[in-house]
Structure formats: C-alpha cells, structure tokens
Design a binder for these strands. Structure first.
Lengths: 343, 343
DNA sequence: GTGAAAGCGCTAACAA
DNA sequence: TTGTTAGCGCTTTCAC
C-alpha cells in the first residue's frame, strides 16, 4: 500500500494524506484521525527511498572506521556505535558502517559528499594532524570527532573522554591513600588518549610534589604479557611501587600475575587501579572486586556524540559542539561488593 | 553535477549517458569513452537516493543485533560485521546497523519489510526456536543466519562455525599427544555453540574409548575468574587432568593462574589448548606462545555470509545456501615461535 | 545506437 | 483546510 492508493481509498489528495501523517498543523484534526486510522489499518509504511529522494536527506549517518584488513575490530568501536545507534533510531536515522584504510579514506569521504548517501559522519580514532578534519570541513559535511586532534586548532565538533582528568583523579586517590610510589602501566603514548593519561598522572604527582620516576612509567600495547613484564620490572626496581595504575583490564591481569609471582598480595601489600574504556566488557560477573576499577563509559559517549551530530544537522548554526566526558569512578575492594563513589 | 547537466554538456540524452555509464551493451564504444571521460572530469556521482528509488533496490543490507541496552557489545559481532562490510562495499552495497531487544524485534523486521530500506538481512545469534526465521520467511526478506537453530527443520540459509568438529580435532590432538585426562572449560552450554563444542569433545573421547568424567567438564561464563576456579577444582580432583581444552582466551588466563598456583608449569607438566572465536583480538603481539591456540576466523565468516546473501538477492532461486566453516588450527609451543599446521 | 517520455513514491510550493 | 502541480535524479520501456 502506497500513498496514492491510500489517498484514493480515503477520497483525499496525496498531499493531505502526507500532511496528516507528518503532523503538519494545517490539517483538520478530524481528517488527521481518519487518515492515521486508515494508515494503521492498511499497514501503510512510507517508502523510505522515495522520501529520501523527495526531501533530499539520506536520514543516515556514516561511521567510517579506520582499519586495515588485518587489524582486528576494536570493541571500543562496538560500544560506541551501539550507543550511537540508539540515538539514531530515536530520531528516525540509520547508521551506515564502512571500513577504510588510510589510502582509501579520502576517496570514500569524497564519494559520500558527492552522492549524498549520508547526512553526516562520525570520525573515529583521530590521528595526529588528521587530514579528515580539514577534508570534511572542505566538503561541508557535518561531522563529530570521537576524540580530538590536539594539533588542529580550528573549530570542529568533538566528543572525548577526559582521560587526563580521569588519570589525575585515580592517581590522586592513590596518593590520598598514602602511596608515594605509583607505577603507571599505560598504552602506546603515540596515541592521543594514552598521552593524555600520562599527563593526568604527572599532574597529580606534581600537585603533591612527588617526583616522577621514569622507571615507574611503562608504555606499550595493551596485552597481558606487557602488563606482566612491566610490573615485574617495576617490582624488581630499587624503588618498587606500592601501587599500580593500569590502563586496561587485560594488562591488569598480567600485573596481577607479576604481583603474585613476587610473593605479594594484592589489596594487602599493594594497590591496583584499572582505568579502562573496555572494562564493561569484562565486568559482567563481578570478576574484579580485588581491583579498584574505573570505567570510562564509551557507550554513553556514542549516544551523546550521535545526538550532537543530529543537532548540528538540524541546526547547522549550532556547530561546533564539544563534550568532555568525565569518568565515573567505581570503587571495589577485595573484601566486599563493588561500591560506587566519586574521587 | 547531475545526470541532466552532464548530458546537456555532452549534447546527449540522459538515457544514453546513463546507459554508457552503466555499461549497457547497445552504446557505441566511442560514445561510451567520451561519456566516461566527461563523468570523470566533472566528478559526476550518481545520486544514490534517486538510483534507489528508480531501481527499487535499497543497495543496503541490514544487520539487526539482538541486544538489550545493558548488555555489552560482543566483539564477535564486530569482527563478523567487519568481514561483511568488505563484501558489501565490493558489490556496491551498504550495511545498516540496528539494535533490537526481543520485544522490539518483530516490529523492526516488519518495518524493514514494508518500507524497503534493506534488500536483505543477516540474523545474528540465533536462539533455540528463534521466531525470526519463520518471520523472515513469511515476510519474504532474503536472509542468512549467522549460526543455526537446530530446532528449526525448514530450509533456510545459514553460515556457522563447525564448533563440533573444531573441538573434536582439538581433543583428538591432545589424545594423540598422549593425554588421557583432558579437562574441558566451556562456555554456557545453554548456548548452541557451546553445546556443540562439548559434543565434539565427547565425540573424540568416545572414538578413543576414553570414559568422560563430569568432574572434567566445566561450563560457565567466559571470564578469567571462572577459568581460575574451574581449573583449581579440576586440579584438586582425584583424577587431575594433564591437559586443558579452553573455550576462550580470557578464561585461559585464569586457567594459567590456577596451574601456576598449583606449582605446575605449563608446557612441561600440563598442556593447554585454547579454542576461541575472539582469539584474534588478543593475539596481536604473540602473547600466547605458551598456549596451543586455535582460531575460528569470524571475520572470514562475515565476509562469506555477506557474499551468500548478495548471491541470494541477485539470484533468489539459489537459496537456501549453507556454509560450515572449519577452524584452521594454529599450533604454538612454549619454546619457539607460533607455527601453522593441521591436526 | 540514440532519444522521448513515463515512471519510481514521495514532498512542497502555490492556488484555491 | 484542501487540492493541483511540479519536481527530486535516476532507470527503463518504447519508438525511431
């Protein structure tokens, strides 16, 4: 059943039926009732392809994931996208997913701009001096960046975790608990987020006039074995740490193994805080009460970023919009259930 | 630049230009050359919204992920979808992603069928007696199931890992190495894939006339702590295992911890095989040479399932199509680099 | 081998 | 408040 057939059945013009269904104010309320009832009864659904052509809007947001074919899918993307999809479906939008390596990236964006398959895009995993930002500005496609390019000083919309503050708070908490020697086990610091995390760690040490010690700062891929070797090295050091601040749950498993190996006991001899984007994925079963765990809610970020983008599309004058997400703290202890609080 | 403008510029009709660009045979080769050159020069891109309306095809495949809003995003979905997207973009299709809980599911599918936003769908995570299969059959939407509903005897298209065979092979390998007491640490066996894995394990034991021992079969959520407790329990048993067959890398980390705790050494006193859909995610850095690891390539599955679906859409008479993916074996040892082989 | 013209199913300016 | 009419930008018959 299409609009024409429905209007014929009702003895009204397509226009009136369309207006009634789309809640245009000028329609007689009685007519509107009648139309909506008939639409329901005949299970009428507007053809989205036609609507899109007629309105000139794709009602679709593009997510282009930077990824070469050998790389694995980062669950962070999944969480973020899950949040975004929720926002889209609430407003009648769809999400279109594309993969792009650095070579194909530019042509993909140009293609999107030219053929109008999307009304806007989310930029994932910004790099340093990311060319996508000026490109999208040039193409005049509405966009929101998930993360930031700190080298780009132009006005653009972004949403980011406050990684610096999160690690500042976590470090501060450990210092307040009496720790003076805190080992940071961080991700690759060539990536923006990891670098910001180290800054937060250093900020807190600086505030408390605690000298930083390069032997207590480790950086590397987020794997269990890296956690193990970093913690082993740190514990063998002349100035062994009394606490660890770890950037990922998987890494923390390695840290835990090293602590074990050294004959120490977590929670008694040594404190560990994990600060992890991905924590939610592993946290299902109260698996980590022995750790003090902090979770950066990526899904909420995705939902917010999507909402920002739709707002920009509806009201371009609103741009640029920015959002800095604070990390909620979830405190756990080895003796009891996980409790909630704020540092 | 649209078709009309381009054709005007060329002094040809829209029809001819369209035909030239779409490789219709009746066009003069010289004309075609001229048209294609001009299209390139003026950066002409057909408006997808218009093409879709005119052809009646959405050029889009829907992936509807069953997920309530509290659940976390399963990285398996990510890998699978990454593979699917590659297949789609090769054939000019897009992927549209939706989340659905069990309540909203039916209406979402009915909506898709009625408004024509997708040409087909992939069904993820089939449940026992999954209503989506008969529903899609009724709605006449082309679809491929990722997994199987063993309770549904109708003809439908699916792609699945051969979980039974994979675990059969892995168990067989351990038996060939001389193990007689093999502990299975499995996922929740109410899920189809885990249940099939146990069957494979039991098949192999049966083939070799080894009695199964319920004390050596553990089932539960795929977490580190479950791995730890399962392995601890197994090792404390009267008939302790000499080998573990573990259904996930994260679980295996817990198993490793338990082995350590028991004063044993992996690779010397005890063997461990991991059989994991998600292994690729953790495997980046050769993290697991001490394990013998097997990887089920989910991404390849996604690509194949997508290709199957597009083939069905192009040639409906081909359906139903089915594919059983075999798990390639990747063998590692504690002393050397990871090697490839087949059991 | 090329073109004219009629759609695809909707929205939106303009009239009434 | 409702209807008439003209698109949106493409594909596809049908005629030449």
């Amino acid at each position: 059943m299409n609009l024409k057939q429905l209007s014929l059945k009702l003895g009204l013009s397509q226009t009136t039926v369309s207006r009634a269904l789309n809640n245009y104010p000028e329609v007689n309320e009685h007519t509107r009732e009648r139309v909506k009832l008939a639409a329901l009864k005949h299970n009428y659904r507007p053809n989205t392809r036609a609507t899109r052509l007629a309105t000139g809007r794709a009602m679709t947001i593009g997510h282009i994931l930077p990824m070469n074919s050998t790389e694995t899918f980062n669950p962070i993307f999944g969480e973020f996208i899950a949040g975004a999809v929720q926002a889209y479906s609430k407003r009648g939008y769809e999400l279109s997913l594309t993969l792009a390596n650095e070579d194909s990236e530019e042509s993909i964006y140009r293609e999107l701009a030219a053929n109008g398959t999307v009304d806007g895009v989310i930029v994932h995993s910004p790099r340093v001096n990311d060319m996508r930002i000026p490109l999208l500005q040039e193409l005049n496609i509405p966009f929101v960046v998930h993360g930031r390019d700190f080298n780009n000083l132009s006005d653009y919309s972004w949403l980011d975790m406050n990684n610096r503050r999160a690690f500042y708070q976590a470090t501060k908490l450990l210092i307040d608990l009496g720790h003076q020697s805190i080992c940071l086990v961080n991700g690759r610091e060539t990536l923006n987020f990891a670098w910001r995390r180290r800054l937060g760690y250093l900020d807190a040490l600086g505030d408390e006039k605690i000298a930083s010690d390069t032997a207590l700062m480790h950086t590397g891929d987020l794997t269990e074995s890296n956690g193990y070797s970093a913690a082993t090295k740190a514990l063998a050091n002349g100035n062994p740490p009394t606490a660890f601040l770890v950037a990922s749950y998987v890494v923390a498993l390695g840290v835990r193994r090293a602590i074990h190996h050294a004959g120490l006991e977590m929670g008694r001899d040594i404190s560990v805080i994990i600060h992890d984007d991905e924590l939610s994925y592993f946290q299902n079963d109260g698996d980590i009460p022995q750790f003090t765990a902090t979770r950066l809610s990526v899904r909420d970020g995705g939902e917010l970023a999507a909402t920002m983008l739709l707002d920009i599309i509806d009201e371009p004058s609103n741009a640029p919009l920015t959002a800095l997400m604070e990390a909620p703290l979830v405190i756990g202890a080895s003796t009891g259930p996980v409790k909630s609080g704020t540092a």
